[in-house]
């Protein structure tokens, strides 16, 4: 024991010699443990309860079986096909929402008359749940891609629009006054002061919309789709392929998590100057 310690000593020494660094590493490790405890516990419960017969394994198969089903779906290329269909819809709807909502929001935020004209209408639509309108979209636009993209566009448009409006409205009046004192015209004022000041708020809207684009997607795909993760989940349930259903659900949460993380990173990049 003591001899092995002696042999190892030179290798270990640099780490041991710096207690602060060691403490830091320990803390990161501790953080990782804390943050994963709940997830690991969920995984264990999911694995063990069906096996012990505490829940019906037919309706909730053990996690390992779900993961096997997931891997099979990956190998057959089926999962990728569905994910691709879903992501395309989400991205198109999301992108269209950005393209439409930001200019509209800037217009409403900057021009009082436009705001007065449109606000009552916007209030009504904003308070109408996107899913409540889904049947209308299907009726008018049919069961194809158009209605699905339209519903995602609709759901994503609101957070971006409202945040853009409030971003423009809440620009520090002193900055505007100061820019005006420099003799800046309305165009430069908007371009150099109002727009950059509103960017972080607009990005918060974009991040929310990103989350919505995934959440609404699944519901849209449960109505008359022939591909997509929502369709996979629904179809698997109808055909009693329960592990496949859970595989679809896991995939969609994974995608949701990744999209959100990406958007948070982008948001940070665009608003490094905003502290507090």
């Amino acid at each position: 024991m003591s001899s092995s310690t002696l042999v190892k000593a030179p290798v270990v020494a640099p780490v041991v010699a710096d207690p602060a660094k060691r403490w830091h590493v320990a803390r990161i490790f501790g953080n990782v443990v804390t943050r994963s405890i709940a997830i690991v516990a969920l995984a264990l419960v999911w694995e063990i309860f069906p096996r012990l017969g505490l829940v019906d394994a037919t309706f909730l198969p053990p996690l390992s079986e779900v993961l096997v089903a997931w891997w099979d779906l990956v190998k057959s290329g089926e999962l990728w096909e569905h994910a691709q269909a879903s992501l395309t819809r989400s991205l198109v709807g999301f992108a269209l929402a950005i393209v439409i909502s930001i200019p509209l929001g800037l217009l409403i935020g900057w021009y009082k008359p436009v705001a007065n004209l449109l606000t009552p209408l916007l209030e009504i639509f904003r308070n109408t749940a996107a899913l409540a309108i889904l049947p209308v979209f299907v009726l008018i636009l049919g069961l194809g891609e158009t209605s699905k993209i339209a519903i995602i566009l609709y759901a994503c448009a609101w957070p971006i629009l409202l945040n853009t409006v409030s971003g423009v409205r809440t620009v520090d009046p002193l900055l505007i006054k100061s820019a005006r004192s420099l003799g800046l015209g309305p165009v430069s004022l908007f371009q150099k002061v109002v727009l950059p000041a509103a960017v972080p708020t607009i990005f918060t809207g974009i991040r929310l919309a990103g989350a919505y684009s995934i959440l609404i997607l699944i519901a849209a795909e449960m109505v008359g789709a022939k591909a997509g993760l929502g369709y996979l989940i629904n179809y698997a349930q109808y055909n009693f392929a329960v592990p496949d259903m859970y595989a679809g659900i896991i995939t969609i949460s994974g995608i949701g998590l990744i999209v959100n993380q990406l958007l948070i990173l982008t948001e940070r990049r665009f608003s490094t100057w905003r502290t507090s």
Partner: peptide, 11 residues
């Protein structure tokens, strides 16, 4: 003009 609250563009 120099304002009391600086009026600097934070970005």
């Amino acid at each position: 003009v120099v304002f009391q609250q600086y009026a600097l563009l934070p970005w």
